Simulated assay, not measured.
Amino acid sequence: MKEYQVVLIDKNIKSDNKIIANSVWEKANCLTDFCSPWNDNLFSKIEFRALWDLDNLYFNFRIKKSDVYIDKTDDSFDSICNSDRVELFFRSNELLSPYYCLEIDTEGRIMDFEAYPDWNFDFNWKWSKEDIEVSTSTYDDVLEVEGRISIESLNELQLIKNDTIETGVYRAKFSKADNDQYVPTWISWVNPNTEKPNFHIASSFGKFILMR
């Protein structure tokens, strides 16, 4: 499995308008080896970073702002699903029984749910407001989506084992097709080796190693 090392940082590093100050993100390893195995569409560079401080797991996606599409019909899950978004999945075991999905669009709208194999989703499940926080910001032509998830909640869900979290990292990128409809390009950190796009499969996960 692919591995990503999550650097340990000191606490109390939140800035006034961001979950973590920009200078702190420089300590993180930068993950850029994303792929879209199901089509030949080119996509702009994606940068992903993660950090932790014993209390929270922090994450940061950086994508090109000019490439972003968002459905502003309403704040429903349907609108989020029809928008550019970044995604993190966490699994408790390789049987995906259960796993937890966090999908965030570029305006910070959250779709989180508990999942089981064969696309069995419980949309009534959510992280508590105390356990999760997200924000978005822009500079130059870069859009950042960042957030934090409490370590306590990840432990309660039995997602941390031997300082390892089995995680999927993804992006859905929408582009206008010839019929003027927006269609997604599915992008993943790990190539799941499936014939059709599918993030909801054990082979799409890698490992986050919590460094100490």
Rank of each mutant, 00 (worst) to 15 (best):
D10T: 10
V86P: 04
D71L: 09
A50V: 02
F121A: 01
T73F: 10
S66G: 01
D67T: 15
D122Y: 12
F77P: 04
I13G: 00
P37C: 09
D112T: 11
F90W: 11
L51R: 04
N82K: 14
I13F: 02
N60L: 13
W125C: 06
S92I: 09
S92R: 14
M111D: 08
Y116S: 03
L57V: 14
N56E: 06
S79R: 04
D55V: 01
I70L: 14
I9D: 07
N93I: 14
E107V: 13
K72M: 13
E130N: 14
D71N: 15
E47T: 06
L51T: 05
D84G: 05
D67F: 07
A21C: 13
E26Q: 15
I19K: 05
N93V: 13
S44P: 01
N56G: 00
R62A: 08
K18F: 11
W119R: 01
C35L: 06
S44V: 05
S83H: 04
D53N: 15
T106C: 15
N93A: 10
T73L: 11
E87Q: 11
N22Y: 07
L102E: 07
A50R: 01
R91I: 11
F123I: 14
W119I: 01
K72P: 01
T106M: 13
E26Y: 02
L54I: 10
L42V: 07
D84Y: 00
F77S: 12
F77Q: 09
T138D: 14
K65V: 04
P37G: 10
L96R: 12
W127H: 12
E47C: 11
D131C: 10
D55S: 12
T73H: 09
I80L: 12
D131Q: 10
N56C: 11
R85K: 14
L8T: 05
T138F: 07
R85P: 00
I46T: 02
R91D: 04
T138S: 14
I19Q: 03
K11T: 11
A28N: 05
F43W: 05
F121T: 00
N120H: 13
V68N: 09
A28L: 06
E114S: 14
L57H: 06
K27T: 12
S66L: 09
I70G: 02
W127M: 13
V24P: 00
F77Y: 14
A21R: 03
I19M: 07
E130W: 00
S79H: 06
M111I: 04
N39E: 13
E114Q: 15
F43Q: 03
Y116A: 00
D55C: 05
Y100K: 02
